[in-house]
């Protein structure tokens, strides 16, 4: 190995690592706010990438029907509850959010499919399709058991993951896709070939991370999320709707997943089940960061990127083993240095 090769590998590591970092952040947001270890995070990657590819091929992606179906289900559940309590204002809000919005997005998707050259519209529509799935998922799968133990929530998350992968296969079929998003221009920086795509990935990740930091540090919503993460009961006592915080965190996770999916789709082949492995690597990054610390999670993800890149050069057959084994020493170290907090001790 010489300097050139090391630089090339590092470049690759930074690009992949910044995607893992985004996913690690999403996982940390969801975990701290709702205690859900969000296994289906990766599905948003696949859904976004495959929806975008379907739009680019001039068809309406199947995810739209999932959105409408989920909306209908929630409209019936929440609508009938509101009707029973005669809260008509709430009823109209429920219907607007869960019926009108999905159909509006479906209309937009149908329109976007007729404009195969309009990249920006396709990207925006893809984000609009995937992002609402987060809160919907929370409402349908997790909200009824929001106070269950971490283990129960994890098992539900695994079930949701399998369900979403199954839908993915039905909607998109078994073969992979790539999208054509960025111009294939590249320029030379010393020995490095820098593509516009890789720049876009790193830049978008950085911007999103900064935006998240601003959201959490400066806005009321961010503070509500942080308060819920710190202490659910306390947050409720001071008038923060933990339900709202949870849905917001799922929305954020879905948005981040969709953005990563769109970013990664031009550089690799995405299958209906690819997202899981990608988000698993983000998960390793989050674990290295202890699942609760944002900067450490981002750093951990970058480490995963480097591990992956260098091991693919030296011992490509063992790459996955090396990446996933790396959490064992981290877990050992953490369990030795930190005293355990039983989550069931929480009130």
């Amino acid at each position: 190995m010489n300097v050139t090769v090391a630089l090339w590998l590092s470049q690759d590591a930074v690009v992949n690592g910044s995607i893992y970092a985004l996913l690690a952040l999403a996982l940390v947001v969801v975990y701290t706010v709702t205690r859900v270890i969000f296994v289906p995070q990766g599905e948003f990657i696949s859904y976004a990438a495959l929806s975008l590819a379907t739009l680019q091929s001039g068809a309406v992606p199947g995810t739209v029907y999932l959105l409408i179906g989920g909306g209908l289900l929630i409209a019936v559940l929440d609508g009938s509850a509101a009707l029973r309590k005669r809260k008509f204002k709430r009823l109209s809000a429920v219907l607007a959010e869960n019926l009108v919005l999905p159909f509006a997005i479906a209309g937009a998707a149908w329109w976007a499919a007729t404009r195969p050259d309009d990249l920006l519209i396709q990207v925006v529509v893809t984000l609009a399709i995937v992002t609402p799935m987060g809160p919907m998922l929370y409402r349908l799968a997790f909200q009824p058991v929001a106070n269950a133990s971490v283990l129960v929530l994890l098992i539900i998350a695994v079930a949701v993951h399998y369900m979403m992968t199954g839908f993915g296969l039905v909607f998109f079929g078994g073969e992979g896709v790539r999208t054509h998003l960025f111009p294939s221009a590249q320029f030379q920086l010393g020995v490095l070939n820098i593509t516009v795509q890789s720049l876009a990935i790193v830049a978008t990740s950085l911007v999103l991370i900064v935006l998240l930091a601003v959201l959490f540090g400066r806005t009321v919503y961010g503070k509500a999320l942080r308060a819920t993460a710190l202490n659910r009961v306390g947050a409720r006592l001071v008038g923060i709707s933990t339900e709202f915080s949870s849905r917001l965190s799922f929305g954020l996770a879905a948005l981040i997943g969709a953005v990563s999916g769109i970013l990664v789709s031009p550089i690799t082949t995405i299958y209906y089940d690819t997202g899981f492995i990608i988000s698993l690597k983000g998960f390793v990054g989050a674990i290295i960061g202890g699942m609760t610390n944002y900067p450490l999670a981002a750093l951990g993800s970058l480490i995963v990127g480097f591990l992956e890149s260098y091991s693919s050069f030296w011992a490509s057959a063992f790459k996955e083993s090396i990446v996933f084994t790396s959490i064992i020493p981290v877990l050992l170290w953490r369990s030795l240095t930190s005293h355990r907090l039983e989550e069931d001790d929480e009130p």
Partner: peptide
């Protein structure tokens, strides 16, 4: 060379560089 990759990998840069070398 005997390089390996997985279907779900986001990049094969390492393996490709080794082959080019």
């Amino acid at each position: 060379t005997d390089e390996r990759y997985a279907r779900a990998d986001t990049s094969v840069a390492g393996q490709v560089i080794k082959i080019l070398a």
